[in-house]
Amino acid sequence: MRPGGLTITEQALAHCDLQSGMRVLDVGCGAGATLRHVIAVYGLMGFGVDVSAELIARARQTNSQVEWMRARSESLPFASESMDVILSECTLCIFEIDTALSECVRTLNYGGYFVVSDLYARNENGAEALRQLPRGTCIGTAMPKTQIVEKLERAGLQISVWQDCSEKLKEFSICTLTTAAQVDPFDLHIAAAKAKLGYYFLVARKNNHR
């Protein structure tokens, strides 16, 4: 489960010039719902990686066309410049972001699309409050937009679309995003409110030349 579900994926992919047969990789694909959907709708060739063996096993049972692999996004089992599209949905801030980004950029073709949706701190000054939360929540690592943009650009990506969709977060209990049960839900909501926790999607392309 993630805020916005497939609607956000659809909205983001509408900004990409997709041709059937293109290769799409979902980093942190979970049980594979997104990939199953996009390969069916756009006729893409699908690849999914996730660190969880259990989720990968479940994904394998649902679809055999997709190549499901257990791997870390910080070390992708693909050749350089082998993907046309990489999806990262609600996963970017749980990765070791700099390493994962450089892996994704390595794997992408020049001009390839990097499609992200994730939490972010709309109030830059409030992001500090998030860091005070106990470890183990993806909320705790949510970054302000400026920082995300900077990291992507430094990794060699050019952002073409940034769309705020924080209203999707409203209908979604942020407690379900926290894996650590011992987080005080009051503290969580105080921090989230101070940081004006929001949700976004972005579409970036790998620069043609380094």
Partner: peptide
């Protein structure tokens, strides 16, 4: 305590 804090934080959001 915590309730009042959440109220304030959400109101200022």
């Amino acid at each position: 305590g915590k309730m009042a804090e959440v109220e304030k934080a959400l109101e200022d959001k």
